[in-house]
Design a protein around this nucleic acid. Structure first.
Lengths: 203, 203, 203, 203
DNA sequence: GATGAATGAGCCTTCATTCAT
DNA sequence: TATGAATGAAGGCTCATTCAT
């Protein structure tokens, strides 16, 4: 009874990453991955149950990493006293998501996979999860400051939702366009600034 | 000379649209489209050359419509006297792309196809074409007003490009999230406002 | 009612020849032929009934030309007085099929088609028809000279048949290998010499 | 590890042979072969890569067998002392390729496949490989005996090539015409005799 | 006579997945 | 656990041919 071959996972995952990156999920071939990794197709099934399982395994740390970062970041904001929150919005460009870029580049390949190669609604679901964190935080803030835009219904759930997903989609352009890290930092700060400026008009 | 069967195109195109929308380009099956339309697979080849030809046919008016709208809109801006251009930027939220939403909803399904289901680089190329129009217009404006950010190299081609594509990607969230038309109008104006505010810091 | 377009046949036939030559009968595409000729596929059907009809039309003159030449040539031999026939066999290299090469080069392309591109049994049938002419002439000669090989059954129909078809197949190597005309003349004479030498042992 | 189903290869190969023989390579259908063999089309791909792989597998032993026979036979001739070589040429009809017929009938069906059904240049390449062996042996002999025909340029590479391929094509008539084995032996000896007689005129 | 359109049959091939070993 | 073999479904596409105009 053969035990798990040492280091095989790494080889498989590296080959899978490459194949998915090159061809996207649908067009990627399990056979090709297996061949490049020097294992049988069946081995992949033994370890990751199926094609989608393999893909999800590859992107999981990245998705969770980003999500965790955003969660903690928003939570930090929520826990500030109200006046500081407002203040931050005034000059967010210096705070922003200070470590977001690090987080992105830490999971670069996997993130690119998730953003550009995912099958079905995997990317949408991921984006959705970020947007939910974001909008609920924003709504809470707007409620705290007693925003009239909110009570008068000018700001709806739909609006919050779309503005937020446009924002995150904007951030992920960094990955789509393989922006160098330094450029990305400036860009993301700028984006954050844009959206801050947008929101301020509702305060 | 056997003439084209009356109204067949409409049936085929409707079925194709549905199939592509449901499964995306790659996963969509020509056989299924043909079956639903009640024609032979070959008929599709006779009329649209191949799968991609069919897809492009479906998409073409939408892509061209949007592109044409954006072109004319930017051209109108460029032809204004300099002071009015600056003025517009100051309060763009009341001008925006006034007819863009109409244009989007006119081609709604086809646009959704283009944005969410296109194979290869078709969507990227489309987006790119808009971004090119946009950035060359923006650069021209910045040159006219003698922007120091431009001459000092803080604004690069890459920066223009990414900000612009983030903007258009943001606009297309309207389609991705099936936003009701009225909401979309507000949203797009808002987005325009965001980006205007962003640019203003460079003037 | 449109009358036959002037000179269309020539164009079609030239394009068909090229396509068949390039791809062989099976792989050749009627559509390609039609496209290159600038006519509709249907036009070919109107004029040549179907793909095989078109092919047969192309090769007919060549097949008949060669067959006619061989027939007349053998007939000439048969009509000689017996002693001259024997004599010819003794020094056939100077007589051979004196005009055969001319005949071959007159129909070169069509012959190449027939030999290398024909579908089904068309080439076999053609070869067979030559072999039949040849063997019946040979047998008649052997009978005339009272060949013991014949009466003793050492020379059978099968033997005659195969030797003859090997001979003609040998001749057609000229076409298969695109042998220059002058070289071909020498070669065919040589071949004839070989076979004459072979036969002489049975006299 | 699922082992190969017992005896499946034989069934598949037999069905493939039949189909190729009946319709030729191009017209033969893998589906039909699979159906007749009672396996799925994919099984054929698992075992033989593709259609051509299957064909080549069928043919390989025959092609190699014949080639090997010819090689050894010519080598034997080359290794004789010069006077015996000349002697053999004088009365080759009694030596010929004594075991060639056995070799042919051993691989009968596969050889028929190779000669009458092969796609592309497979048969040509096979023939060419024989011709190469043959001509280099012949040339060596002519050089040894200091043939004036060679030094004077009357015998060229082209001539050697064509005469040789006509000879082997002649031999394969045996297969094309399904000649009974005994008849074939006589025929091939005869053919060898013909060509020996031809060559002798150049010595 | 010429044609554009339509067709149905058929092609080879690839795929993810299962299963006995 | 790892695997080679087998599979059924499906894929896009090409073809020769027919037919109404």
């Amino acid at each position: 009874m053969a035990s798990r071959i040492e280091g095989l996972d790494e080889v498989i995952l590296r080959c899978a990453e490459q194949e998915f990156l090159e061809k996207g999920f649908t067009e990627a071939s399990l056979r090709t991955i297996a061949q490049n990794a020097g294992v049988s197709t069946s081995t992949i099934y033994t370890r990751y149950s199926d094609k989608e399982g393999l893909f999800r395994f590859l992107i999981k740390p990245a998705a969770e990493g980003i999500r965790e970062y955003v969660r903690r970041s928003l939570q930090g904001f929520s826990e500030l006293p109200e006046e500081e929150q407002t203040e931050q919005y005034e000059d967010y460009s210096e705070q922003g998501f200070p470590g977001l870029v690090s987080c992105i580049y830490e999971h670069y390949n996997a993130l690119k996979l998730l953003i550009t190669c995912a099958p079905g609604t995997i990317y949408q679901d991921f984006l959705e999860s970020l947007v939910e964190l974001d909008t609920s935080c924003t709504r809470r803030f707007l409620e705290q400051i007693g925003s009239s835009a909110l009570t008068e219904g000018r700001i709806t759930d739909g609006f919050l939702h779309v503005v937020s997903s446009a924002f995150y989609a904007g951030i992920f352009e960094v990955v789509i366009h393989d922006m160098p890290r330094q450029e990305a930092e400036v860009y993301i700060n700028e984006l954050r600034n844009f959206y801050s400026n947008g929101w301020k008009t509702y305060f």
